[in-house]
Write a protein that binds this DNA or RNA. Structure first.
Lengths: 169, 169
DNA sequence: TTATACTTTCAAAAAGTTTTGAAAGTTATT
DNA sequence: AATAACTTTCAAAACTTTTTGAAAGTATAA
């Protein structure tokens, strides 16, 4: 396999994986392309390399930047904007974790708070079960939230340092 | 807010959250319904409560069972099948983690292995960058994989016991 | 064996998401 | 101020996923 084939394969597969992660295919493909590119690329290059339209390229590059996993870059003497990917995988993982925490965990906690105060006979089995479930979920969500906060704030290599000891390095 | 409104709100919101997790809306709604139900429900009840078709109900109940987060149940003297949700949230989290590991992590490792052996001039910047990236991703994926394996095998309350010490809780 | 009470399947329809590309917007240069 | 080089927007089209419901399948009881 030569380098072009390998890059192509990687980009396609990364796109497919992205979809399972709830990330749109093109966004993941652009990230993959920027990850394997030794130099920043501009819109035209991305469009050509992935055979996508200008609008699509623009939209998804912007999404990557919003997530904090790609950056705009300017080359002196050039008007074009260049883009590069964040290549520190731990940093990417941290960003993605933060983003998901915001999008997934915060709404759960908010929902549970709203739904916590219900009126009615506390001996009704429906009410008993509901309150039990809300309580269980709330405890869980708060534990996960605190744990994420902890690991995100900690050293970027937390995962290594916390767990790898168990595997002797 | 009365119990019916609260349940309704919870079910709808859980469905929306499910979508962001890559889980189909109806599957998440059925899970939510079964989570708040004090007794197991049968197909007819699920269809009616969520206003969905028989096929849709059947398909998504089956998916929940495949994921190991809901169970079939039989009531003696009844021909209908009843369904109940796994209500231990730690158990649900474990199952979901296992499922995602299989669907998301395993394909990455497989891809990286395939793409690792490329032919060409090792001084070509494209090749250098590519090999660097594959190596970084491979190390990361393997660390995450081993860590998940560890925490899944460990006590169900691993999350608590590993991190909560840091919060004196 | 036949009838009945249920569950499962699957092709077509509906709903939802992504992509396109032309037009509008922005900024830098002359 | 006008032009050129670029970026962004957005409505329509293409594509993907989900849902429906009627038909087929299965198991139990009489």
């Amino acid at each position: 396999m030569n380098i072009t084939e390998a890059q192509e394969k990687f980009i396609q597969a990364w796109g497919t994986l992205g979809q399972q992660w709830g990330v749109n295919r093109t966004m993941a493909q652009i990230q993959a392309l920027l990850l394997v590119a030794p130099e920043p690329l501009h819109a035209e290059e991305i469009m050509e390399r992935l055979s996508i339209s200008r609008g699509n390229a623009n939209m998804n590059v912007r999404a990557l930047i919003d997530w904090g996993i790609a950056y705009k870059e300017h080359k002196s003497g050039e008007r074009k904007e260049y883009f590069r990917a964040e290549k520190d995988i731990w940093e990417v993982a941290k960003r993605v974790t933060l983003e998901r925490r915001k999008r997934e965990l915060e709404p759960i906690v908010k929902l549970l708070d709203e739904v916590k105060q219900i009126t009615g006979d506390k001996n009704d089995p429906e009410i008993k079960e509901f309150e039990l479930m809300v309580d269980r979920l709330d405890k869980f969500a708060n534990k996960v939230d605190k744990s994420l906060e902890y690991v995100i704030r900690a050293d970027e290599h937390w995962f290594l340092s916390t767990f790898m000891k168990a595997f002797k390095g």
